[in-house]
């Protein structure tokens, strides 16, 4: 479904700040996979997402989505089939547009047949209402409220709905609950699980929550220094404990840790 072949991305190449953010990454994501992605800061998780979403082009390597080479496809074109959510709830919605307008934008842009001048119909409105009521936040009665007045959790729930209202081929979640309070985070996590499972969306999720990483989805990847160093399938995940994972986390990030220490001791 999604295939990365030897993808490399180097920032500030040739300068003293040169950083290999992705190092010959090979990854094969199967259809229906729900992958959690772990790794310390600077391991290359977000860089990997940026490469898949097309925020920048990779320096080397090839990216295939459904056997179609998308290595050089612009980010906004990829967004038609790749949904994405960020940590910051402010990044996914337009604050001066209403809930309905935000949904309309997401719904119309991802539809395959809609023309530039198409608008939402009464029927679409009903559909939005139904989808919003699924969030259990009472947003269905506030369709004409400006999004800027919603709480972080509500905005993130709306963003999740916008990213999935037309089922994407791939959903990228970049720590999308990290900026929320624990209750809201739990709610969004539960919603994510439900929506992803119901629509059988292929999904990659970055998280720092070890327990969550092992309990959600069917596969866990571990990144370190721009490489995927561990790839656990469902069986392997069952056998590994959080402590064990932490151990290996420390082990694999030891190099980074040492680097940090070196810098600090200087």
């Amino acid at each position: 479904m999604l295939k990365l072949e030897k993808c490399t991305k180097i920032f500030e190449k040739g300068t003293i700040n040169e950083k290999v953010a992705l190092n010959q990454v090979d990854l094969k994501v199967n259809k229906g996979d729900f992958i959690t992605l772990l790794g310390s800061n600077g391991a290359g998780k977000s860089t990997l997402f940026n490469a898949i979403a097309g925020t920048f082009l990779v320096d080397e390597g090839k990216i295939l989505l459904d056997n179609e080479n998308i290595t050089y496809v612009a980010d906004y074109k990829r967004a038609k089939v790749i949904g994405r959510m960020f940590q910051d709830p402010l990044k996914g919605t337009a604050p001066h547009m209403t809930i309905e307008e935000n949904l309309a934008l997401a719904y119309l842009r991802a539809g395959q047949k809609t023309a530039s001048f198409s608008r939402i119909s009464k029927k679409d409105e009903e559909y939005f209402r139904e989808k919003l009521s699924m969030l259990n936040m009472g947003l269905e009665d506030r369709m004409h409220t400006l999004v800027g007045t919603l709480s972080g959790g509500q905005r993130q729930a709306l963003t999740l709905l916008m990213a999935t209202i037309v089922t994407p081929k791939l959903l990228l979640l970049d720590e999308h609950t990290a900026a929320l309070d624990p209750q809201a985070a739990e709610k969004i996590t539960a919603l994510t699980k439900r929506i992803v499972e119901e629509n059988e969306i292929t999904c990659l999720m970055i998280t720092h929550h070890m327990k969550q990483a092992l309990s959600i989805g069917n596969r866990t990847l571990f990144m370190s220094n721009g490489r995927i160093v561990m790839d656990l399938n469902e069986e392997e995940r069952k056998q590994i404990s959080v402590n064990e994972l932490l151990e290996r986390f420390k082990e694999s990030s030891k190099e980074e840790f040492d680097n940090d220490r070196m810098m600090l001791s200087e």
Binding site: A53, T55, D75, Y76, K77, R78, A79, K80, G83, R84, F86, D88, L90, K91, G92, T93, A94, P95, H96, M97, E101, A104, L105, A106, L108, R109, A110, M162
Partner: peptide, 18 residues
């Protein structure tokens, strides 16, 4: 709507296939 979103939130633009 796309034009309005462009001016309203630069961060959401590319992710909204605009």
């Amino acid at each position: 709507l796309s034009i309005r979103a462009t001016g309203d939130n630069k961060d959401m633009v590319a992710a909204s296939s605009i």
